[in-house]
Simulated scan of single mutants.
Amino acid sequence: MRKVRIVAVGVVIAVLAAGGIVGFQIDTGSRKIDYVVGSEDGNRVELDVTLQRVDVTARELDLRIIPVLHGALADGADDIPAKDIEVETSSLTSGVLRFKAHDRVSLQDVRMGVDDGLVSSYPFDSYAAGIGFYVTAGDQDVPLSLRFRGYDALFTAKADDAEWRTGLLKANVVAGRSFSSSVLAWFLMIAMWALALAVLGAALTIVSKRMGLVWPAMGWMAATLFALVGFRNAAPGSPPIGGLIDYGAFFWAELLTTVSLVYVVVHGIRQARAD
């Protein structure tokens, strides 16, 4: 019987480990996808855009942009323009990005405003932003394409609904919580409820058995009250207070724990005085 239990535990551990590896593959696989849209002209500017971070508080996307030159627009290499390149973005802070002819191009950081999405929906929050580029080479409109990928560990991002013509390209970027951050957020919510219900169950047991002031139990309950705050602050991305995670778990867990602790203390004091 003991050997059977050991084997069963080993099988459970193996299944959980395999599930974790599968989840890791799903999470990392979604980050390796490049979304390519736009012109396929042999003489074009390809904007390589990566999403570095989703700033949920400022409601902005931090993008990193570098133009890749093809055909006659490149001066011997895809990172050296044959003509002056100007990239006008839809960003309200960065304006026009300029790249001099015959000089190696460099990465440019741009912040784009979010059009849709609220952090109060955490952990179900997602964000959408329209991005646009107008590109000229030597004051002439050129064919344009976009290669987009997301590097923010907390979000899975993609570009869709693209529209383009010579010199102009528009697309919509959608960023949602990654698989790993969503799983951890859900685990924290379930753990907060489990801790609160455990405290409530212990409180009801102490009172029903008229056990009086049980100091170790009250110390554990008080410690749980503060431990819940640590659980809340461990949420991926450190969302501000007032999100769905708070109304769905944290506020109620704190309330149940506090009420249980006070209930046990009041009952214990009455019991001690009566004795």
Score class of each variant (00 low, 15 high):
T136C: 09
V36P: 04
W215G: 03
F251H: 03
R59N: 14
V22A: 13
S120P: 07
V11P: 03
M1S: 06
G38Q: 05
V262E: 13
L154M: 10
A171M: 10
T224A: 02
F99E: 08
H70T: 09
A196T: 12
F226W: 03
E254F: 07
L213V: 06
S126Q: 10
G95T: 13
L16D: 01
M211G: 04
L107K: 14
V173P: 06
L244E: 04
A227E: 00
L184R: 10
R31T: 12
T89N: 10
V265C: 13
Q108K: 14
P239M: 04
D55S: 06
I85P: 02
D141E: 15
G29A: 05
L118E: 13
V119A: 03
P239L: 03
G19S: 08
I13N: 05
F231Q: 02
V174G: 00
V199G: 06
D75N: 09
Y35V: 06
H267E: 11
G243A: 00
H70G: 13
D78G: 09
M189I: 10
Y247I: 10
V229R: 01
V96L: 12
K3A: 13
L97Q: 07
G150K: 05
A77F: 15
K209H: 12
D48M: 01
H102F: 11
I190W: 10
Y134G: 12
V142K: 07
R31M: 06
T166M: 07
L188H: 12
V214L: 04
R64V: 10
F133Q: 03
I85T: 13
S260W: 06
G20W: 03
P123C: 08
S94M: 12
Q271D: 15
G130F: 07
G150W: 03
S30N: 11
A196R: 10
A274G: 00
P123M: 00
G268D: 01
V119G: 05
V105H: 07
V114T: 14
R44C: 11
V119H: 02
A217F: 01
V56H: 07
N172H: 02
F133L: 07
L97H: 08
W193C: 05
G130V: 02
K100F: 13
I245Y: 04
G230V: 10
L197H: 11
A196M: 00
D275C: 09
F250D: 02
Y127S: 01
V199D: 08
A58W: 04
G237T: 02
L256V: 15
G38M: 02
Q108I: 01
S121T: 12
